[in-house]
Each structure stands twice: as structure tokens, then as C-alpha cells.
């Protein structure tokens, strides 16, 4: 029995099983905090703690799932292409806004976290907080952060941005559909896009494009900004 529970077969079946159930309950209830990634993680962490399986052993057994993450990041190139070809509108305005937004997002989170005394690994984990999880965890791992922390922060940032986003946009007097969609997608990725779709189809489509642009720009800007900051230290 012990060997069976520690086997790769069991751990893979358990992981995918928990994920399928988590996905199903999220779709049934539509409660944002029941995000399938959060519930899956809680259940799996509790499970391996109870069965006394060390994280290293779990990671080893589920390596194949982790490998698929790389492939899904590559697959995002296809998504970006589909969104770009169906996109019309002021491209210069969109790219400029995303570029500045990305830099402001990275620099502000670094400065605030450092000022509050955060460990360098924590700072590295927060740098890609505004972008879609697959790119964010990849960027985080690359700059020496804790991918698990990034995954959680990204989801919570998405929920936070989607909840306060429409309120902030109203306060600022933002009427433009392009600006609203772009802001929600770039600050709160897919969760923000779901919210943008409630505002309208145009906002939703632009928000989807914003996720891709923000992801690509941030992936390139994080190492650049890190290099510049190291230079000035």
C-alpha cells in the first residue's frame, strides 16, 4: 500500500483527478475565490502532507506535467497570432500603453517590495505579477524567484484587479472601450478579461490581446530592468 501511494502512477492520477474536480466545481459555482488552481493546490498539498510524501518526491513523480508547461508557453505564440490577426484599432496606442504599463508594474513592485524589506527571492517572484500564469512562472523561475509564490500572487492580483478595476476606471473617467479593455487585461490578465467581457465584447477582445502583449513585453523587460537595477546598485 505504501509503495502504491508513493508511485508515479498514483500521484499523477491523484493530481489530474483533483484538477478535474476543481475545474468542475469552479464552473458550477462561478465563485472567483474557488479558482481551480487554488483549490487544487490546497487539496494536493493537504494530501501529500497527510500521506507524508516529501515535495521532492512529488515533484519528481509529476515532472511530465511540469514539462507540458513549457509546451503551453510555446502554444501561446499561436494564441497571440490569432488575436493579432483579428485585431483592428490603434496599434500604436495599445503598444505604447502596454509598454509603459509593463515597466511601471515591474519597477513599482520591485521598489515597494524592497522598501518593505522583502527577500530578493520574494522580489523576483513578484516582478511578473501582472501577466498570465504560464509566462509569469517561467519568468520567475528564470530570475531566481519562487514559482509557486508567483502562481498564487498572479491569481490573487487577477481577482483584485478584476474587482477594483471597473471602479478605478470609473473614478478616472475612462470612457474609451479600448482603454478599459486594455487596462483590465494588462493589470489582471485572464480574470480581468472575464470582467472586461461583462463590460462589452470590444472590451473583452482587446483585453484578451492585452494579456498576450503584456506577457511578451514583461518577459523581455524583467531581465532588462533587473540588469539596469544591478548596474545602479
Amino acid at each position: 500500500m505504501h509503495n502504491l501511494i508513493h508511485s508515479q502512477l498514483f500521484l499523477l492520477t491523484f493530481t489530474i483527478g483533483v484538477y478535474v474536480v476543481a475545474l468542475w466545481s469552479y464552473r458550477k459555482t462561478k465563485i472567483m475565490l474557488l479558482h481551480p488552481l487554488i483549490t487544487s493546490l490546497l487539496v494536493i498539498i493537504a494530501g501529500i502532507k497527510t500521506a507524508d510524501i516529501p515535495y521532492q518526491e512529488y515533484a519528481e513523480a509529476t515532472k511530465i506535467i511540469d514539462f507540458m508547461l513549457g509546451l503551453s508557453v510555446v502554444a501561446l505564440g499561436y494564441l497571440l497570432y490569432e488575436q493579432m490577426t483579428h485585431m483592428k484599432g490603434n496599434i500604436t496606442a495599445m503598444v505604447t500603453a502596454i509598454l509603459v504599463g509593463s515597466v511601471v508594474g515591474i519597477v513599482s513592485v520591485i521598489l515597494i517590495a524592497k522598501a518593505l524589506g522583502a527577500d530578493p527571492r520574494i522580489v523576483a517572484s513578484l516582478e511578473p505579477k501582472s501577466i498570465t500564469t504560464p509566462i509569469a512562472v517561467t519568468v520567475c523561475a528564470h530570475s531566481g524567484g519562487i514559482p509557486a509564490l508567483t502562481a498564487i500572487v498572479v491569481i490573487l492580483v487577477g481577482i483584485f484587479g478584476a474587482v477594483i478595476g471597473p471602479f478605478v476606471l470609473k473614478k478616472l473617467g475612462i470612457e474609451s472601450k479600448l482603454a478599459r479593455g486594455l487596462a483590465l487585461g494588462s493589470a489582471a490578465h485572464a480574470v480581468g478579461t472575464a470582467r472586461a467581457m461583462e463590460l462589452g465584447a470590444v472590451e473583452g477582445a482587446i483585453s484578451g490581446l492585452a494579456i498576450g502583449l503584456m506577457g511578451v513585453v514583461t518577459a523581455v523587460m524583467v531581465p532588462v530592468i533587473e540588469a539596469i537595477m544591478r548596474f545602479f546598485e
Binding site: L23, A59, I65, L69
Partner: peptide
């Protein structure tokens, strides 16, 4: 989402 789980754990 499934693919982040091992990292998240």
C-alpha cells in the same frame, strides 16, 4: 492550469 500544479505544490 493543470500544468502549474507541480510548481504550485
Amino acid at each position: 492550469m493543470l500544468f502549474f500544479i507541480p510548481l504550485g505544490v
